[in-house]
Design a protein around this nucleic acid. Structure first.
Lengths: 187, 187
DNA sequence: TCGCACATGTAACGTGTTACATGATTCA
DNA sequence: TGAATCATGTAACACGTTACATGTGCGA
């Protein structure tokens, strides 16, 4: 019997989990602590998010969990990525940067870059930064032209809010250019 | 018969709509065009988001829609904020900036500031910017100490990703300090 | 024995996404 | 008549949020 199974991609939270599991096998509880205590904290550390996300990853065959009784505490379930999980994750890391990725907030993009070490490929990181700078600058031109079109009588606060966004993007371009120095370009 | 009605706050999308309706009464279709064509575009312009959001606002008594047959086209429903809607909206604009507002992404904060003109209160905008800079700087210290704690052997990409966030926040502080000049402080 | 830290989960709910359906009017 | 544009909506679905429930072993 053929099952059609949508096999949708994991969400950002799913990929974040997958990335952390690439560093070291962990339990849901461990992951919650990571999300609660680090800059990844914009992702939820609540059990109602983590455990279902782990289960979905397992159902898709991207991670596998097994009981760990080595401690004397209540047995934990240690998860680690499967081969399929690793493949999907690497594909996600290498995905082309599109305009939408930039205009809908760079968070997901930075999450990807943060886990780029998994690739062990300096060229990939280099390309990522080059592409990121290029896409942001294209988007900046869009924002600039929006600023010009902005009606004169538009409230100062709206115009300033647009400026805030522009300045943040500019800072990101500078950052990307600087970060480039850390990676060798492919020949 | 007493109805207990949760009366939850609108979402960001709801507040964005409420703000746009404060500028000029509009139909769902108009709003979709605004979201599709401006920097507010990170909010959805899909009918499946806008129309339900409008209905929810109406159910809560925050906006009221009425048919407009002035055009020869299919009649549109023009929405405008009610007195209650205006009150809620102004309360939202004036809400204290909390640490979480900063660490969970500044988008909602900037949305608020963009609509600050509704208040017609320079002091409020001034305070907003001062508070924003203060909270961001506090959060920056948190990020800085996280950077120090960061294990030496942590992948360069992770450290750089953290830097990217830091640089964006710094840019925002600079922006806030500059924007301050446009508003008179209360005495 | 009581409470706490460790550890895993579930149920109800709200909302955004995608895709589809429909209605009204104009113009070729 | 058919296509295009204006305009409003719904249904199925996935996911995160909040709040609650449960289990295990340790130390006071």
């Amino acid at each position: 019997m053929l099952r059609t199974m949508r096999e949708t991609m994991p969400t950002n939270l799913g990929f974040a989990i997958l990335g952390l599991l690439h560093q070291v096998p962990q339990s849901g509880y461990d992951l919650r602590k990571v999300f609660a205590s680090t800059a990844l904290g914009n992702y939820s550390s609540s059990p109602g998010a983590i455990y279902p996300a782990l289960r979905r990853l397992e159902e898709k065959g991207l991670v596998r969990g097994r009981e760990d009784r080595s401690t004397s505490l209540r047995p934990r379930k240690l998860y680690r990525p499967t081969a399929a999980g690793s493949k999907i994750f690497r594909g996600w890391l290498r995905k082309e940067i599109e305009r939408d990725d930039v205009s809908r907030g760079v968070d997901a993009l930075m999450l990807r870059f943060a886990f780029h070490s998994v690739l062990e490929d300096q060229g990939a990181s280099h390309r990522f930064l080059v592409d990121l700078a290029r896409e942001i600058e294209a988007y900046l031109e869009e924002l600039d032209s929006q600023k010009k079109i902005f009606p004169e009588q538009a409230p100062i606060q709206s115009r300033l809010a647009l400026d805030a966004g522009i300045e943040q993007y500019r800072a990101l371009v500078r950052w990307a250019r600087g970060a480039l120095e850390h990676f060798k370009e492919d020949v």
